[in-house]
Nucleic acid binder design. Structure first.
Lengths: 108, 108
DNA sequence: TTGACATATAAAGATTTCTTGATACATTGA
DNA sequence: TCAATGTATCAAGAAATCTTTATATGTCAA
């Protein structure tokens, strides 16, 4: 996703689709709580299952949603799988919202 | 929404709910395209209907979603209703993502 | 190799969201 | 007041999303 003015990005179907997917990944309470836990550093799925008292397959579903959006990455270590936030994509979102905000502050 | 560390915010049910709603509002392509148009300044619904070639009731539906989330505000002027972005809420989102990003960059 | 454990995937139903077409509401000008 | 216009709301169906239960996959230890 190039560093374009947001007004231009929001006219490019590809960027619009990508942004919609990113925001969708963040639009669910369970997923936001997962993000909250991952702020403490990489976490094993088992830790998250305990901390969020969500069923195992439910957690797996949401972890996949976050992963498909690129917000987290996973790493297998033996039987365990660890998930971690992907700062790059967070930076992307921040830049986008930041530019939108700047333009809006000027014009609105 | 207080200026808390994101890890703490994401443990507060109210904040989690609010954030999920904000992100949901941004998770639809039609709504993102509306935001793109509003970056050109306040717009009449009729302008948006033309620019996005979306049906009138469909547009109304999405404008309501953006308004309910607090991302835009509306102003009636005679028969016309104008919508504009709300920079404050954009700033809120930016701050949130920014803090998440910072923490993530350190720990991940 | 087998059994146990951690996680992922699949299938089905429940719920939510989106789209469309019809209708209601508000404002203006005649 | 009435007709025309711009916008909002409603109702119904379509589509997407989420939850749950069951099953599959992968890894380790015995």
């Amino acid at each position: 996703m190039a560093a374009l003015l947001p007004a231009r990005m929001l006219e490019r179907p590809r960027d619009v689709t990508r942004l919609a997917r990113l925001f969708h990944a963040l639009s669910d309470e369970t997923r936001l709580r997962i993000v909250g836990k991952l702020l403490g550093g990489e976490q094993c799925v088992c830790t998250l299952t305990d901390a969020l008292d969500a069923g195992q397959s439910r957690l797996s579903f949401h972890l996949k949603a976050l992963k498909d959006a690129g917000l987290v990455s996973d790493r297998r270590e033996g039987r365990w799988v660890h998930y971690a936030l992907n700062p790059d994509v967070l930076q992307e979102i921040k830049s986008f919202i930041g530019s939108v905000r700047e333009v809006a502050a000027r014009c609105c």
